[in-house]
Amino acid sequence: MASEYSLSVVLEKMYENQLGLEAALMELVLLVEQQGCETVGENARGALERIGNNAGFINQGLARLRILEKD
């Protein structure tokens, strides 16, 4: 079991924060697009795409780190 402040636990908390920020940014994108600011919405969606792509990579890295910590 990982300790309270092990690397995997700290990275998991950072990953959870990333997901929360992604959700909040999406809410803002929808609001901005409804107000007719398509360019701003497109730019923010580009950032959301990057966040989404990185989320899978981070999740895989966390899974591997947890396995290493069990040994």
Rank of each mutant, 00 (worst) to 15 (best):
M26W: 03
L30K: 10
I51H: 05
L48Q: 00
L11I: 08
R66D: 10
G46M: 04
G41R: 04
L68N: 11
R64P: 01
G52D: 01
A47Y: 04
L7M: 06
G46Q: 09
I67E: 15
N53D: 03
V32H: 09
S3N: 15
A24F: 13
L62R: 04
A24G: 06
L31V: 12
A47S: 10
E38G: 13
R66T: 15
N17P: 02
M1Q: 09
R64K: 14
M26I: 01
G61H: 05
L31M: 06
R45Q: 05
R64S: 14
L65G: 05
E27H: 13
S3T: 10
Q18I: 11
N54F: 15
L31E: 12
V29C: 03
G52C: 12
R64E: 07
E42Q: 11
A2Y: 08
M26Q: 15
R64M: 15
E33N: 11
Q60V: 11
N53Q: 11
L30D: 08
A44E: 00
K70C: 07
L65D: 07
N54Y: 06
E16V: 08
V9D: 12
V32A: 13
L7C: 02
E33A: 10
L21P: 06
E22Y: 02
K70N: 13
V9P: 01
E38W: 06
R64I: 04
V29P: 00
T39F: 15
C37G: 05
V32E: 09
R45E: 12
A24S: 07
L25V: 03
K13N: 10
E4M: 13
N43G: 03
A55T: 15
G61N: 06
L11A: 14
G61T: 11
I51Q: 07
T39I: 08
A24M: 07
V10L: 14
V40M: 12
G61I: 05
A55K: 06
N17H: 08
E49L: 08
N54S: 14
E33C: 02
M1N: 05
K13C: 08
E22V: 01
A47G: 08
E42V: 05
Q34W: 08
M1H: 08
E4F: 10
V40P: 01
L31P: 02
L48C: 07
I51C: 08
M14E: 10
E16H: 11
I58Y: 06
N53H: 11
F57T: 13
G56P: 01
D71V: 00
E69S: 14
L65W: 04
A63H: 12
Y5C: 03
K13R: 13
A23T: 04
E42H: 07
V32N: 03
L68Y: 09
K13V: 05
G20M: 05
V29L: 00
I51P: 03
Y15H: 14
N17M: 12
E16C: 01
R50P: 02
E69K: 05
G61R: 05
G20E: 10
V9L: 14
Q60A: 12
T39G: 04
Y15M: 09
A63G: 02
E4C: 03
L25C: 02
N53I: 00
R50E: 08
E27S: 15
D71I: 00
N54H: 10
L19Y: 01
L28P: 00
S6I: 05
K70S: 07
A44M: 05
E16Y: 01
G41D: 04
N54P: 02
G52N: 12
A24P: 03
E27K: 15
R66M: 09
M14D: 12
A47I: 15
K13P: 02
